[in-house]
Amino acid sequence: MIRMTRVAKRYGAEEALADLDWEVGEGEFCVVHAPSGAGKTTLLRLLTMEILPTEGQVQVGSFVSGRASKGQRAQLRRTLGVVYEDFKLLQDRDVFENVALVLRTQGVWDRPTLERRVEEALARVGLPGRGRSLPRELSGGQKQRAAIARAIVHQPLVLLADEPTGSLDPRSASEIIDLLFEIHASGAAVVLATKDEPLAERLGARGVRVVDLVEGRLVPYVGGTV
């Protein structure tokens, strides 16, 4: 599903990732743990092909960095679901339009279909009937749920979550993690990046593969929960 082969990413003289080999299988749940600034976001941006590796190769499904055109990279993103710490909801439209946007990028324009699929996604994340709410009317936890609804409405094979609980209170964070487990249980591979060590510990304890990103390289989590 995901394969990174001898990947390096440099920003000028600064090396964010170095000689990185990594694989995530179909339907796998994997946590990348690292402190702030260690390269987690760079790793996820490489997976969405928002940026390309300086060296090596990133493969996500049938999309291969270096061979994928801009149009194909956009196509790749349509097969992924991505969740961010700051939610990245569009503030100028309601939750329905935020979630429906993903379907529209995939050519779904039929209103009844859009309404049915968006409502299903919202119900799945615990926000039934909140489609007409604006992002500013939601709590942090609800915003993240809306963002997750947007990430899963098109039933992606891979869900990437970049610090999904970073700006949430413990209770909301716990609910979001449970939600990610539900999505994983339905067959999607989940890659979660976090700096939260207790969270990494807890996920490791639930059987999730946890890796540490140290000096630009992925190594087994020192907590030994692999």
Binding site: T48, E50, K70, G71, A74, Q75, L76, R77, R78, T79, L80, V82, K88, L89, L90, D92, L101, V102, T105, Q106, R150
Partner: peptide, 12 residues
Amino acid sequence: TMRIMALVGASN
């Protein structure tokens, strides 16, 4: 807004 749209797979 443009960046978020690109992140969810919108074409140019």
